[in-house]
Amino acid sequence: MAEPAPTGTRPEPRDAVPVRHPGRWVAIAVLAVLAAMLVHTLLTNDNFGWSLVGEYLFSGPILRGLQNTLILTVLSMLIGILGGIGLAVMRLSPNPVLSGVAGVYLWLFRGTPLIAQLLFWSYLSALYPNLSLGIPFGPEFVVFDTNTLISPFLACLLGLGLNEAAYMAEIVRGGIQSVDHGQTEAAEALGMTRVQTLRRVILPQAMRVIVPPTGNETIGMLKTTSLVVVIGYTELLTSAQRIYSTNFQTIPLLIVAAAWYLLLTSLLTAGQRVIERRYGRGVAGAVTEGTPLLRSRLLGKSGEGQA
């Protein structure tokens, strides 16, 4: 048995043997082969039609469809967020009538397909040929033709926005419930009203929980706008479909649409991460998103500050 080292002496250094990871090298080799095969087929397969992709990428019809996609995404998400906040507050209200109305709304709009809702708003004139303003069960002051009032664009907004409000309501409700109830009690002790407490205390703290799923919903909405083709509205994918229905170049036009979707979703993802870091400041474990390089820089700066 070896004698223990005398007290106060430095132990002899030992050579550290790094842990072997043969599986990593096998995985890297397999991925390298697959990547080489992908690059080879992209460069050698003429059926991709890269010249046509470059020709139509910035063409007028594609850019007009892209513009309609962006407008629908922004306005629909605006309707969804505002409606979701209102529904979440109603759902959490102690008033059983408000809570019940919000519950029925969520049950209806989350329980039916979005395509069915789009078609319903588009064919609303079959149910109500005219819409009017007046006294209930009394005289009508203003009468509108439903086909004129509910245009394809408005039908898209109603279908996408009202459906999104149902999902945003659950996201906002989860964010509000994540805030400790003591915050509400402290605000009430300071004399704040329920609205002031919600606006100044609860929602700012709930944003840390609300922002990530809201970003996902926005990215999803960008792609969900392609469903408006069922009511004849022209957006990005519909524009590509109309072009390849005439020149029969299906794959190049689909690549054009996919390229724009990838670019927009990448921009939205980057914006989402910036907002998440803003609302996650001062919270343990907030630096969880982004690239490894970004995380190392942020953690390094925090370590320097602590030092």
Rank of each mutant, 00 (worst) to 15 (best):
P152W: 01
P4K: 13
G60S: 13
D15Y: 03
I81R: 00
G138I: 10
P213M: 06
G65P: 09
L294T: 07
V256C: 06
N247S: 07
M37V: 13
A258F: 08
K301M: 05
T148Q: 13
L227F: 15
S125Q: 06
Y123F: 12
N147P: 08
R297D: 06
N247C: 08
T234C: 13
A29M: 06
L72G: 06
Y56S: 14
L75M: 04
R200D: 11
L31Y: 11
T269I: 03
I150F: 07
T269E: 10
K301L: 06
R173T: 08
G271M: 05
P212K: 02
V53P: 07
E217D: 14
G8I: 04
A169I: 04
I79M: 05
T146L: 10
S93E: 05
V172A: 12
S51T: 15
E276S: 07
W260Y: 03
S245F: 06
A16Y: 14
Q196T: 02
P18R: 08
A284L: 11
A169L: 03
L268D: 09
Y105L: 00
I171K: 09
N47T: 13
R91G: 03
A16H: 14
L108Y: 02
A284N: 10
K301Y: 00
R64V: 11
M207L: 15
G161W: 01
A102E: 00
T69L: 04
L82E: 04
G65K: 07
T265R: 01
Y279K: 10
T288I: 11
S99F: 00
L106W: 00
I62F: 05
L131S: 04
A29P: 02
G174H: 07
V283Y: 15
A187P: 10
V53G: 11
G54D: 07
M221V: 11
V101Q: 01
L106P: 00
T288L: 07
R242C: 09
V143H: 09
G111T: 06
N95Y: 01
M90T: 01
L43D: 04
L38H: 07
R200N: 10
G100M: 01
T44R: 03
L237P: 06
K223S: 13
A155G: 11
T193M: 10
L31Q: 09
G220Q: 10
P129K: 09
G271L: 05
A88F: 00
G271R: 04
L236V: 15
V104W: 00
